[in-house]
Design a protein around this nucleic acid. Structure first.
Lengths: 218, 218, 218, 218
DNA sequence: TATGAATGAGGTTTCATTCAT
DNA sequence: TATGAATGAAACCTCATTCAT
């Protein structure tokens, strides 16, 4: 009816292109906070600044939105880690400590940390999520660390019985730290028992490396 | 007042006394599997072999049922650990490995393992759960392990910079193992990446102890 | 099993015989207070000091209980009025004021006053109640008053155009006073606007009689 | 923001604006007929031609709907009476009969008559209703009539002992007539005892006025 | 595209009634 | 008789999804 100015058009187009990302961000936040089932799709829309109906222009259902969220906030950080690990050089323990802490702190600080909680929470209701997650996150993540450990063994730095177990020992606390950030820590519970994440990551890796360097236990 | 002999209703009484526990067990299983919000109260009732209405004879609301579940399946195992840890004697690393693995395997195999997932999943919606959990589980659990580490230091077995961090390094993988049991592992995803829990616990503790025994890293 | 003492038997028999009346009283109170639909049958049982099941030994359903309540608390007072009115002698206005106020105050103070509210509230859901009520209460009640008015006309005391209307003018405020006792007055609302019932009944009847005595309005 | 012309959704907007009133009307009818507790919210919705869910778009709960009903159908008629009473002139008895009958017949014929029954029925369950009712209906209504009576006294037409009692004598039958319309009369019970409302109102007022004009009874 | 009114399946909870004891 | 545990129909309310504008 009224001729729309080209300016307004530009604004709208820009908004339009940003929409899916805004919706995904809002969805991630809310799904992580309240869980998938307890989050109303209207809440997601409101948090993204659009109306209920608009959400359904971009995602055909709440469940598809969940899957899209997982896919959207995954991988990039993990993959970044792979690149850096491959490029790094020098004493493996030093490299790993620098690399892993930096890499993981980025994950911890960013939205990906929430996805860890979300996936753990929802896999049993939506197993396809799990397949995707293992393939794109778990497997590559473990591979990075396993690769570094093996490099350490090759360089004579480490003496390791079971590389897979060591990978778990290294990574699981980091993952749980992410999960905790979005459960206990997010509601200010057990403050006196909390640990500064970065401090812990350093201490944790040093402890592990000390163990890895020791001659294999009898 | 009633002329009916007191043991005439023994059967009913016994059923009545068993009901809450049956309902709590069913609720735990389902809440852990599907999440609190996604579990219908009728499902819980059916799983316990009673009707919808009966559930509400024993718990005034679904939310109260959740709280009761947490309280019911908590603490006993943790406390058992405290007793054993206090009673144990000899080289701390050996004692800990035996004790911790046995203790934790009981937790891992029993219903408590599910509660770890449940609490992580639901704290943000029901923060009171978290208070209870920290007070009754997290704090005592960390205290057990911290106490053992300190004993190790006192005996000259361990050299530790930061006891709290070491406690986290030890416990977090064990906790996440419990959580994983009820998320990824329960739906048969990522089998190729899985680790046998008991094997891992042994390997994990040996790695940590090796680290703890090493002279403090420069 | 245990031989019951004859004494206990007597006590039980007495209680047993009192049960229906106790239940009816409790039911009346609660139905008047909360309405039939909003009263739970267990509440009635509790108020009568018995258990839910016992109620159903005496009344086959909640609806039958309602009917029984209406029937139980009706009629006797009304009929008493008929006897007295027939027996009375002397100037009708004086007789009526004495008789009506006394009669009605007994109704107002007793349980029957609640039945007025109950019937008004529930007729449309249970029309049979209405039939019974009109036949046993409304018709005889109006007949008493109409009879007295006609006696007054016959004695030359009153000059009345429309006896039925006069009966309504006399009785309706008295009925509404009963209803109010169990609605507004029972929850202490509008205290400043309330009137002392007996004072009002006297004033009301005198006003009416003054009107009835006046020569028919032009 | 939206490119849709403002009057494109005129139809929807008009519907939306009409909805609350439609729902309130349906609710009044059903609440008066069956009582609040015995009316299902879906019935209200159906009677207003919408679905269950739509009702809850406009009223947050059944109880709030009840309160809204009372507030919606109150006051306007009462207030209209105040204006007319103030404006009227001439012999008070004549003025009052004309005014009161006309005023009250409008109330009797309109939806407000049902509210009298509804309020009486539900005050004890929702006392806040009563406060509102007394303040907005009872007090002003009594004030109108009391004012007229006092004007009659000032003009030498009436001789009254107790104005408040006279107000009650005048109004209570009118109120109960409204209540009866929605209880006994609505289910066709006691037809032979019924009175034509308008006829009765005239007769009632004349009887009262005759009493008010008489010299105060000794 | 964007909106938000409307829907109705489905979830939680209540309660009249039954029945084993 | 008396009890109160158990039932399940039915009530209230929510929310994912649709669709007219």
């Amino acid at each position: 009816m009224s001729p729309i100015s080209p300016d307004a058009c530009l604004f709208r187009r820009r908004r339009k292109e940003a929409r899916p990302a805004e919706l995904l961000e809002a969805a991630l936040t809310l799904f992580v906070e309240k869980g998938f089932a307890a989050t109303r799709s209207e809440e997601v829309a409101k948090a993204a600044g659009v109306s209920k109906g608009t959400l359904y222009l971009y995602f055909p259902s709440k469940e598809e939105l969940l899957k899209a969220v997982i896919q959207h906030f995954v991988g990039t950080e993990i993959e970044a880690g792979i690149q850096e690990a491959a490029a790094a050089d020098g004493p493996v323990a030093e490299v790993m400590e620098q690399l892993l802490v930096a890499w993981w702190m980025r994950i911890y600080e960013g939205p990906a940390s929430g996805v860890f909680k979300l996936v753990i929470t929802e896999v049993r209701n939506f197993p396809e999520i799990g397949e995707f997650w293992v393939e794109r996150v778990v497997a590559p993540g473990q591979a990075i660390v396993a690769g570094l450990i093996r490099r350490g063994i090759a360089r004579g730095e480490f003496a390791v019985d079971d590389v897979d177990c060591a990978v778990h020992s290294i990574l699981m606390p980091l993952i749980l730290e992410c999960v905790h950030k979005h459960s206990f820590m997010a509601c200010g519970i057990g403050k006196e028992l909390e640990i500064h994440p970065e401090t812990f990551m350093h201490a944790h890796l040093r402890l592990i490396f000390a163990g890895l360097k020791a001659p294999a236990s009898a």
